[in-house]
Design a protein around this nucleic acid. Structure first.
Lengths: 220, 220
DNA sequence: GTCGGGCTGTATCGCCCGATACGAGACGCT
DNA sequence: AGCGTCTCGTATCGGGCGATACAGCCCGAC
């Protein structure tokens, strides 16, 4: 249970059901651990609805360094951005666990939309949600303070993956400091230092290796 | 001509024509300078296709500081993110010039999509393009180096708004150092210093107040 | 057990950014 | 001309982050 690998993204149950209902427009595919779904730079009209496993979405910078955008777990959509705007992939997707996904192709989408306009609305909701998360991340990354950057990630994970705990909310997702560093654009050492500082500020705690976001602003 | 206020966003001509063709689904509205199109936090199903003027999209952080996402000039779309996912606006939009726009409402969209599936595909292209730009910005904001952050903005503006010049590409858009600072999450002083450094590195030049991106890797 | 690898916690050092302040120049207004 | 406003350039100072290095720990492999 502890340290089970989970994603950093989730969509609401209704949306998942709605997408699943349209699964027939795509085809089921399997990706072995450490294989690539798509690669930054290539042009493709395909996108994916992850059913099982874990897919790491990352952007490689000109100097070769990697920025991890998300870890997409089951019931998430990825690759739809570049599939719909027709431009080269701006990110790479690699299965870091054995993965199953439904692969959709946008080339026939206009026809599908005519018969099933609700599927179009659905996809618009998904791309809009992604736009939102990216914008919110950007808001925090605009700050140069590591604490802002890291807390943004933690609160986002709280929204998606936390369970209740007597002293607050416990993050089910397990991430190493190294992973947090690549997702927040800081160094590993700074992540350690910052988490330490947050503990001193009584805002978080570590329980069995997992991060606990303490309830705030209550006399305790 | 110099210092005319322009936006920081543009979409290709074909996309503009396609959207204009569907203008009948919305209604024309005017916004006076310094009025608000929508505000962060509110729930709304409306989005806008700007025809004339200039709209500043910004996110306000918890401490009150402002991160400017974009300046949307004519022939750009804004507000579609929150209009389609149904969640509170993650950004605010304010007309900083007298502005005319077509206001669309998403509530009747499923019906429209049935008759005009190409309109759905169009909107998906637009949201996907926004997702792309946000992701690319994120890639650079992940770096803590002001030079990366600022160069990202400049090259993006180059793609959208530069004209040819004997020594490189001249940015038509005029931005004060202060504006660049709020868009890149740095301080005004650092923008000045960084641009100075870029001039010393012979990567940019200032021509008549406008930034010139010098041609690179050519013996000069 | 023993070894090795991955992760976390610290320490030191250098550097660069942010905060702050002030002056110069451009421009508009009266 | 005189004034105010906006912008850019530059200086000082303090702090904190990145780079680097190393120690302790856990855990799995053998």
């Amino acid at each position: 249970m502890t340290k089970e690998k989970l994603g950093t993204w989730r969509i609401d149950r209704q949306l998942v059901e709605d997408i699943s209902r349209h699964a027939a427009y795509g085809r089921r595919r399997k990706f072995k651990k450490n294989t690539v779904l798509y690669e930054q730079g290539e042009v493709s009209t395909r996108f994916y609805f992850v059913l099982k496993g874990l897919v790491q979405i990352s952007i490689f910078r000109a100097d070769g360094s990697e920025v991890v955008l998300e870890l997409m777990g089951p019931q998430t959509v990825c690759g739809e951005g570049s599939a719909f705007d027709g431009l080269p992939r701006f990110s790479s997707a690699a299965a870091i666990e054995d993965t199953e996904a439904i692969e959709f192709d946008t080339t026939k989408m206009t026809e599908i939309f005519r018969a099933h306009p609700e599927f179009a609305a659905l996809l618009l909701r998904v791309t809009s949600l992604k736009q939102r998360v990216l914008a919110v991340r950007l808001k925090h990354l605009a700050s140069r303070e590591p604490q802002d950057r890291i807390m943004e990630l933690l609160t986002r994970l709280e929204d998606m993956f936390a369970i209740d705990h007597p002293r607050g909310r416990l993050l089910v997702t397990y991430l190493t400091h190294e992973q947090i560093a690549t997702m927040t654009g800081t160094s590993r050492v700074t992540v350690t230092r910052t988490l330490q500082r947050l503990r001193e500020q009584n805002r978080i705690d570590i329980v069995d290796g997992h991060i606990l976001l303490k309830r705030r602003a209550d006399g305790g």
